[in-house]
Design a protein around this nucleic acid. Sequence first.
DNA 1: AATATAAATAATAATCGTTATTATTTTTGT
DNA 2: ACAAAAATAATAACGATTATTATTTATATT
Lengths: 133, 133
Amino acid sequence: MKTLKYSRQRESIKACLMGRRDHPTADDVYLSIRQEYPNISLGTVYRNLNLLVELGEVQKLSFGYGPDRFDADLIPHYHFVCKNCGTIADLPLKPFPELNREAQQCCEGRIDSHSTYFYGMCRNCMFREPPQD
Amino acid sequence: MKTLKYSRQRESIKACLMGRRDHPTADDVYLSIRQEYPNISLGTVYRNLNLLVELGEVQKLSFGYGPDRFDADLIPHYHFVCKNCGTIADLPLKPFPELNREAQQCCEGRIDSHSTYFYGMCRNCMFREPPQD
DNA sequence: AATATAAATAATAATCGTTATTATTTTTGT
DNA sequence: ACAAAAATAATAACGATTATTATTTATATT
């Protein structure tokens, strides 16, 4: 069988993710880790991020456009995406289980989960941008 | 200003989308249109699909993995994704505006919309696949 | 501590989905 | 019929991600 072996790179990747709140992309993580391990390769970052997702230690966020993001905060929560600047923010909002129940009532298959992203304009952009007409 | 000109290819693309319920990818549409216009190019399909989305005549679906899908059904509704076979199904479920309201209460920016996808196993796969342990 | 193994790595190529470029064709207004 | 603008087919380029491979590293066993 395939056993998991320790790797300092993986530790560093996980530590990096746990240390930030900005939902970095694989490339963001790569740039950050490079300061400690200057010749880590991007492929290693991707492989370990995916591994951590499989292990359930990290979650991957995919919303419509741009590269995927990673989040080490395992407490279930929704995300907000600013359509203007692309920033992702955590919403301190517990996922609604009743959504799955509602959907189940009109679905012939079995519903296990849902993913919801909220879109709009973040506070920063609201002040910086000209008001919409 | 930039005016829109008729194109038979665009008409065919829209007709194709309106004629099917399976949420095809750009490539699916391409293969279908090729029967009528054997040397249409994939770029033309992408360009027109995006144009139709901008015009609000078609919606684009992006959920986590794989290529984007397109849907000519403009009545707002949610979608179900089978994690086993990848099929997309419409859920005859009106989007919940209260979701936006709930999220707005704990968001400093302005929330305009949300996108929700439900994941699970479709009826077909439930019967075909060994029951999960 | 030395050795054998299996897994992880860095470097790099390859893939996938999509967008950009450009010379040519088609639409449309005069 | 003609000119101007837009759309096209063909193709190159792109960004994000995965696959390949020779080398290095971690770990279990001697």
